[in-house]
């Protein structure tokens, strides 16, 4: 098929043109949001402190996340052997009619290396999801909310039924704190899995018009 030219679009009425243009902008937004989250995954694996980085998270929006914009602090003594490789799969992305807001969920099967105090690193299997809301700020897509939601974070050989590492922080989290944080919906062998996050539906922007409303993620939880 030849390249599309303006001649191919000349027959469209103005109304048709604007309708198609809006749909194309929504499709481009899906692509750009996927690029954005891919870039965020790269930065997640590269944990150098203090490096100047392109701003990936919204800063000016009233709903901008304080947690996402906090500077990184050291949670390991050395970066040697530490790695966070969380590939993004299974994307579900819904863009609003104005192509300025997007909700999305990815699933991920990932691997990690963790060495807190320069000990030999632990190999970790990390399954999880990346739910989030994205907005256009300063002419580019940025992450408004949403970070890693853990399913497993297990020592490689022990497997996910018998091992669950907490999120590594300094000071370390108590089990209760970890469960209230990224481990809230993590796998547990004695529990039925909660269906969170729900992927955004086609009607997500009609049902939840406020981009700071995260209720769409939790529609399967008992009210």
């Amino acid at each position: 098929m030849d390249e599309i030219t303006i001649d191919d679009l000349a027959a469209l009425s103005d109304d048709e043109f604007e309708q198609y243009e809006a749909e194309v902008d929504r499709l481009l937004a899906v692509w750009q949001v996927k690029n954005l989250r891919g870039q965020a995954a790269i930065f997640h694996d590269d944990q150098h402190l203090g490096d100047q980085r392109r701003q990936l998270t919204a800063t000016d929006h009233p709903g901008a996340s304080e947690m996402l914009n906090e500077p990184r602090t050291a949670v390991v003594d050395s970066l040697e052997g530490n790695a966070l490789f969380h590939p993004l799969t299974t994307p579900v992305v819904e863009v609003d009619a104005t192509a300025t807001k997007a909700r999305a969920v990815w699933w991920s099967v990932g691997v990690e290396g963790l060495s807190k105090f320069r000990e030999h690193p632990m190999a970790i299997i990390s399954l999880g999801m990346v739910p989030g809301t994205h907005v256009v700020e300063h002419g580019e897509w940025r992450i408004l909310s949403g970070t890693w939601q853990r399913t497993t974070k297990n020592e490689y050989h022990a497997g996910w039924v018998h091992s669950m590492e907490p999120t590594n922080t300094r000071p370390p989290l108590t089990p209760e704190q970890d469960r209230a944080f990224m481990g809230r919906f993590a796998y547990r062998k004695d529990e039925v899995r909660a269906a969170v996050p729900e992927p955004p539906t086609r009607d997500t922007w009609k049902d939840f018009p406020d981009e700071t409303d995260d209720g769409w993620l939790y529609v399967n939880l008992p009210s």
Binding site: T5, D8, L9, D14, F17, E21, V24, L27, L28
Partner: peptide, 22 residues
């Protein structure tokens, strides 16, 4: 905003990029 040839050209480029992306 009027539908101009410049705007049509921008849309054509976007469509070609989307086809390339896939």
């Amino acid at each position: 905003m009027a539908v101009t040839d410049e705007r049509r050209a921008r849309l054509a480029t976007k469509l070609n990029k989307l086809r390339a992306y896939q």
